[in-house]
Nucleic acid binder design. Sequence first.
DNA 1: CTGAAAGCGCTTACAG
DNA 2: CTGAAAGCGCTTACAG
Lengths: 404, 404
Amino acid sequence: MNRPRIPRQSDIARLAGVSQATVSMVLNDRAGANRIPEATQKRIREAMAELGYVPNIAAQSLRGGRSGLIGVHTFERVFPTAPDDYYREFLNGIEEQAVAAGLDLVLFASTQKPDGTRSIYGSGSNRMRLADGAVILGFEKNDDEIRRLADEGFPFVFIGHREVEGVDVPFVTADYSSAMAPVVRMLADAEHRKVAYLAAPLRGFAQQERLEGFTAAAAPAQAGSAGAAGLAFEVDVREPAEVTAAWVRATLAGGATAIVVETYDLARALADALASAGLSAPADVSVIGLDSDPRSEGAFSHVRVPRRAMGRRAVELLLAVIDGSAPAPLTLPVHCDPPTHDTVGTPSLGTSIVATAAATASATPATTTTPAPAPAPAATIAAPATAAPPASATTAPTPAPSAV
Amino acid sequence: MNRPRIPRQSDIARLAGVSQATVSMVLNDRAGANRIPEATQKRIREAMAELGYVPNIAAQSLRGGRSGLIGVHTFERVFPTAPDDYYREFLNGIEEQAVAAGLDLVLFASTQKPDGTRSIYGSGSNRMRLADGAVILGFEKNDDEIRRLADEGFPFVFIGHREVEGVDVPFVTADYSSAMAPVVRMLADAEHRKVAYLAAPLRGFAQQERLEGFTAAAAPAQAGSAGAAGLAFEVDVREPAEVTAAWVRATLAGGATAIVVETYDLARALADALASAGLSAPADVSVIGLDSDPRSEGAFSHVRVPRRAMGRRAVELLLAVIDGSAPAPLTLPVHCDPPTHDTVGTPSLGTSIVATAAATASATPATTTTPAPAPAPAATIAAPATAAPPASATTAPTPAPSAV
DNA sequence: CTGAAAGCGCTTACAG
DNA sequence: CTGAAAGCGCTTACAG
């Protein structure tokens, strides 16, 4: 069977009795600019329909420069084996926005090395340039590759706060600083007076910003300003393995009536710990998570990290970067939905096992006592030494996120 | 900041002191054919590395070369909103094999129309031609687009049995015909004598093949041949909404001690029906599903549709189609893992609500009584009229799947 | 108002 | 052993 040749512009031109260039003009609606008569245009369109013409994308993008392709690169596998993978919602958002922008997505799979990690330049060449730009995700540190990408002038945007020395890394992030106010308000409104802030040892940017936001939100209330009643909190840095039934009992015995959980792995550990202590939220203790993953989502009320919206905004930001219309510093915080009330109750409502310390105990709160206006620096909090900010944050101060 | 120009072959050529054509030869490993000396090749490769050369995919594919891109097209959205989407595992497999083959994946999102469906030619141009070939998924019927794709000679492979008149559609499918034998054996071994085969009204290829496979496996046993004891079954075609507690009671009252569920939506309906009837599997009735989706997976023992493996094999088959090394008829059945035993028990073990009809009732079984060797045609089964094969299967007989 | 021509970055015969 | 040249199918100045 002889494969029928795919029609091209010159075939239409011949059929319509015009030049190939004229066909191109009509196709691209630049016909008006050149005032090609309606009759000619009609003839051309009829010829197109008759031959079933379809433009050759490769030729178009070779000529025009843009491929209409947005890359997606992760430093780990894109479709992890686990059914509850973290990337999923980001991809949903990226895809949504690609649809809206009429772009296609390239998932770079060819860059995977035998150990399962993915490298941009590992193969010796940057396949990524096949796309007009790329959204990059992943926890792995690959500062050298990022720097090289920036040096080449390749447009990219990170999902998640990323800093690489010498490079203005564009990124979208959850707006944790503003997301903490509703959390504090909800706890204060439920008349909690003392809260345990269960923090992760690894102090990434997200952890840092959550704690700063929480502190800033709690401080004015603490000072007795308008609105909610005072809320004291104590930062407790723990590995997930340390979050046991005993830890829960000790925490409640210390007078806390609510627990704020910084990360999703701690949230999972806490859910297990509560279960094995025979306690439940909000009956025995109120709990709010500041992050979540699919596995921890059902356990507690939590700040909803807007992963899908972040994916969408990342593509928007990328498109702005690609055509140079994005103003510095190219960081885009995305609003977080406030937590639900499911696992937050009033202390009196609970059948707390804590009888030794009153919920309203006037023990010196661990939080700042300075009546300074928000945002108060987190550094004044009596946190364990392990809660020190990450190296990058101490050497170079974290830049304030600002909208694009 | 002036963006450094992206290097092209002529830049490498200049740096290495050769012609651009020579660079192309070395790049494409056709250097051997032209016996370009190792020293020259080395110089060229070093220049490539130094400049960070990456081929321009558009130019390559315009010229007729390979882009190293495998397209993924779905007639519905790729990343559905529901957390339990059906495509997920297929994509996992596709991606796995892309990694293995060193290829990248293009997810066509630009083709989405306002109603959410996706069309290959809807935008007037076939973006898909950017890729070397494509894996296509989706339930929507778009025979015209498939035919056009085939006419253009574009390589593609379907996931799922697909037939389009006048086109040899390459596809991978679950090997249902062989998957049914373990199901029949498991039921017979557990000493079931009468089984209800709960079938879907929509008789797609998968449904068709399951029923044929089941019939073929049950027939020899029925004839008293070696191995399992006789197994009679009655096909009951139902909409999911019809699968109620009453339906379950009536089915058990009819003497069936086990239910085989053809599709995952019926499986979900049956799970609900059992619950509302206050029954459970395998205590009251044994149940095996012949398909599953993430939402029905936990409910019953089921034949595991090897979605990930199907994704992998689809890419393998596509690569064979692309370089013309795949022999007709290009259909590839993938082995299914046998079901677990979780919801299969012996009838005597159950506290069946059925007291009226003995489990070993000698009522005339609905199955074929012909002692013919397998595979027996499903047509001899006393199925309701609505269980007629689909139009395409009656006009053109279903071709026997055969390995590539 | 329309056409001839250049050129996007490649690959592949074809000459030397 | 290597280079000059054609050409893939387009878009976009530039001439008429």
